[in-house]
Design a protein around this nucleic acid. Structure first.
Lengths: 115, 115
DNA sequence: CATAAATGCAACCTCCTGGTTGCGCGTTTT
DNA sequence: AAAACGCGCAACCAGGAGGTTGCATTTATG
């Protein structure tokens, strides 16, 4: 019995978190916070990475649904997919919230008495 | 110039996300949603993993500050550190929120005109 | 049309990660 | 005091992730 996240939202959440888990990728997201679309050249500048390296990370973000790619002419622009981040934020919030509702710190102590 | 997340909150956020990025680890967090403290034996049951394997994951979660370890007698209990998840949720929310505030979809289009 | 610019694609390499096994050590239990 | 329980630690291993180089491709520019 492998009870890995059968929960749909949890599965996707894991993918999103994995994508955001890399420092470079998170930095890229930070760069996209302005909500505008940036080309790969723009995004590559400032990193100790090859353009191809950055592209890989952007593809990873795209695969996780965090970012949207759109080619225009000879350059490719990336922008943030707001909804994905919102969902993940909501997921995390729900976890800590449930922790809050059900018993929380008190039960934590009582658990030690049980079994 | 390597402009990796100099921002403190972003650095920690990356660590937390990396920890939550693994399906097994996220499943463990799911199991701890009840807010109570569970022993390693309890948490191990149901996974296609060795106890030592699960322990490794729990240690990773602990290192990221997502979980708290407390040894009592011969068994070790883990429980959720609510604040860490709250912070990460807030971080994600702030990113998508800023996207919303600043221009968002409109500017996304305009950006294509620029440079 | 020749060339430069911006990107895509594939092969390759290294190192970290997730997983295992084996064993030792403190704590209950009988 | 044995034996069983719950756990920590170390070594080890395969595979994937992050990164590179090299070249092909498409689009703009002079």
């Amino acid at each position: 019995m492998s009870l890995l996240p059968d929960n749909e939202s949890a599965v996707r959440a894991a993918a999103v978190f994995a994508a955001l888990g890399d420092p470079t990728r998170l930095a890229l997201v930070e760069r996209l916070r302005d909500g505008r679309a940036h080309s790969i050249m723009q995004l590559s500048s400032g990193f100790d990475l090859t353009r191809q390296g950055v592209t890989k990370h952007l593809s990873a973000l795209e695969a996780a649904g965090i970012v949207i790619r759109k080619r225009t002419g000879r350059q490719t622009h990336f922008s943030i997919e707001r909804k994905t981040l919102e969902n993940s934020a909501a997921y995390l919030a729900s976890v800590s919230q449930q922790w809050d509702e059900t018993l929380g710190r008190l039960e934590t102590l009582l658990a030690k008495t049980r079994d």
